[in-house]
Amino acid sequence: MSQATSGGDKTSRERARGSRREEICEAALDLAAAGGNHAVTHHAIDDRLGIARGSTSYYYRTRQALLTAAITHLTGLSRHAFLATFEEADTSLDVDRAADLSARQLDLLLGPRRRDALARYALTADAANDDGLRSALARCLFSVPGAEALMAHLDATDPSCAAHNFIILLEGLLFDRLHGSRSGLVIAPGSAASIADLRRPIRLWLTALQHGD
């Protein structure tokens, strides 16, 4: 067998392993969102993917390794979504535009990315006594560096402090619509009403930030 062929086979195997790991992480998030953290087991993922028992544990030997991989995968999905939205925003980004883009990001987590948000909340129980998982979960939906860049662009006096406070606001709005007092409202994600409902408090907060309140 030639070196070229051998190298090609190795690349194919590595690509297949990468694809399988991604499928496992996706299945873990699906199970967590639908059934809570206890639904995420190696065997349950094997069954969901229709693969031989023991296949998931071949890639992730422990449950902690599996959960860490799933959360890391979720972080990657969130980073991609953030960049897809804010990197295309022009340099004249103002409060109104920032509020609109932020509201649309939250609305995605209530609609097309609802699975991701539900999985994140479901896995918090596993992170209660695990500093590594807790830290990973804390940053898996919202980007602190991204928020800091946005706050700096809006001329916040302390971009780092403002970024953390902004994420607190977004976290609260998301939880309220998913599980809080406004979860019973009939507001369809993706609708103008949904985006307006989220945009309003975000715009008020950003306006207060610029006025130094």
Results as ranks from 00 to 15, higher is better:
191 S>R: 07
209 L>M: 15
53 R>W: 11
19 S>Q: 12
172 G>F: 04
151 M>H: 08
118 L>T: 01
28 A>N: 09
148 E>T: 13
201 P>A: 12
66 L>N: 05
46 D>I: 03
48 R>M: 07
41 T>K: 05
28 A>R: 09
173 L>P: 02
59 Y>D: 14
152 A>N: 08
99 A>S: 15
93 L>T: 08
130 D>H: 01
166 F>V: 00
34 A>T: 12
89 A>C: 13
137 L>A: 06
5 T>W: 14
105 Q>S: 12
66 L>H: 10
155 D>S: 15
110 L>K: 11
195 I>L: 02
199 R>Y: 02
178 L>R: 00
96 D>M: 10
1 M>I: 07
113 R>M: 15
183 S>E: 07
144 V>W: 02
5 T>Q: 15
172 G>H: 02
16 A>Y: 10
212 G>Y: 05
36 G>W: 03
196 A>H: 12
129 N>S: 15
186 V>C: 08
84 A>C: 03
53 R>M: 11
86 F>D: 12
120 R>P: 00
48 R>K: 14
112 P>M: 09
65 A>H: 04
76 G>Y: 03
126 D>V: 02
178 L>D: 02
195 I>E: 10
136 A>H: 12
83 L>Q: 12
101 L>N: 09
68 T>F: 06
20 R>V: 13
30 D>M: 11
88 E>T: 15
111 G>N: 03
47 D>H: 07
26 E>L: 10
145 P>D: 11
47 D>I: 00
13 R>V: 11
99 A>H: 03
205 W>I: 00
154 L>S: 05
70 A>T: 04
189 P>A: 05
42 H>P: 04
181 S>N: 10
21 R>Y: 01
117 A>I: 03
155 D>I: 02
82 F>R: 11
146 G>S: 04
153 H>N: 11
191 S>F: 10
168 I>L: 13
213 D>H: 13
98 A>H: 04
138 A>G: 08
89 A>F: 05
160 S>Q: 12
45 I>S: 04
44 A>M: 01
6 S>T: 14
210 Q>Y: 03
73 H>F: 15
168 I>D: 15
117 A>H: 05
7 G>E: 14
149 A>G: 11
200 R>L: 12
21 R>C: 09
5 T>D: 11
151 M>R: 08
56 T>Y: 00
164 H>P: 00
32 A>D: 08
150 L>E: 02
77 L>W: 08
211 H>N: 14
9 D>I: 10
52 A>I: 09
131 D>E: 12
152 A>I: 04
184 G>Q: 10
130 D>F: 01
151 M>W: 08
209 L>V: 04
71 I>G: 07
71 I>A: 05
130 D>P: 01
118 L>G: 03
75 T>Y: 03
101 L>W: 10
175 F>P: 00
47 D>F: 00
202 I>A: 02
50 G>V: 08
151 M>L: 15
79 R>E: 14
34 A>H: 06
181 S>Q: 12
120 R>L: 08
16 A>L: 14
148 E>P: 00
210 Q>L: 09
89 A>S: 13
40 V>A: 02
131 D>Y: 01
61 R>W: 05
